[in-house]
Simulated assay, not measured.
Amino acid sequence: MTNNLLKGSKIILTSFKEEYFKNFTKWYNDMPFLRNYDMIAAFPRSIDELKPMIDDVKKSSDKFIFAIKTLKDDKFIGVTGFEDILWNNGTAVIYIGIGEKQNRGLGIGTEAFNLTMEFGFEELNLHRIQLTVLSYNTPAIKLYEKLGFKREGVYREFIHRDNKRYDMYLYGILRTEWENLNNY
């Protein structure tokens, strides 16, 4: 158990605030970011389109969203959270998006995902956390496998991008696996 739930050495997970929409909208107009972050067609979205989406998450009982902020300069750099929580089964889908390219590959995603999983297993009492990832997103796949997620399935030729079909992988981690990796 941690004394600083949602706080790591580089980042902190906080509530998503109105002031973050400018950056969030910028990311939703960055096609390479969107092509890794979501399975739907990558198309630009305005603040007016994104606000209801975030409001829906905040009002929901089966979703959580956190803003990822740096401790050093208190800068909003990404989002993480859960969706599709099935409380009766203790399962949820986890997600993450680090917005600016210069913030990727620095260990921030690892720390943010660890904090999000800790929240899921320790605070929400989840039994299983899962995610999907496109086969061409190798940095994300490396992150998930490093954190103990196991590839459990393949949705063959799931998505069509750039005149080619790509698989989508299903990854999952159980609470006991996470506890063993984190010496609980």
Rank of each mutant, 00 (worst) to 15 (best):
L5G: 06
N114Y: 05
Y169P: 04
R175Y: 04
N88P: 12
K69E: 15
K58R: 12
Y136M: 10
S60G: 07
E145K: 01
L174W: 04
K150E: 13
I141C: 03
P139C: 01
G105A: 08
T70P: 11
Y136A: 07
E18T: 12
D73K: 13
E100H: 07
S9N: 15
L147N: 04
F43K: 15
I47C: 09
E118Y: 04
T138A: 08
K59I: 06
K146E: 07
L131F: 03
N125V: 03
A42E: 10
F76Q: 03
P52G: 06
K146S: 10
G109R: 00
N125F: 03
T116Q: 05
Y144N: 00
G172M: 08
L13N: 07
R128E: 08
H160N: 15
L170D: 12
F149D: 00
M168G: 12
T70Q: 08
K69S: 13
E19V: 11
F21Q: 07
W87C: 14
L126S: 05
F64S: 09
D38W: 05
I98C: 05
D56K: 14
N3Y: 05
I108F: 02
F158Q: 15
R151S: 04
L181A: 08
G107I: 03
D73V: 08
T91C: 09
D56Q: 15
R45K: 15
A92G: 06
F113W: 09
E157R: 14
G78R: 00
M117T: 01
D30P: 09
I40V: 12
R104L: 04
V57M: 10
D55E: 14
F16G: 01
A41V: 13
D167R: 02
K17P: 11
D38P: 08
I12N: 11
T2L: 09
D74G: 03
Y20C: 13
F149Q: 00
V57E: 06
M39Y: 08
N89R: 14
A112E: 02
W87D: 15
I54C: 08
Y144M: 00
R45P: 09
L131N: 09
I108S: 01
G120P: 05
I11P: 03
R35Q: 14
K72A: 11
E152P: 04
E118N: 15
K146A: 03
A140C: 05
I94R: 04
N137S: 07
Y171E: 11
G78N: 03
E18I: 08
F16R: 01
D48W: 03
Y166D: 13
K58D: 09
P32I: 07
T138H: 10
L50P: 01
Y136E: 04
D167S: 02
I40T: 13
D55T: 10
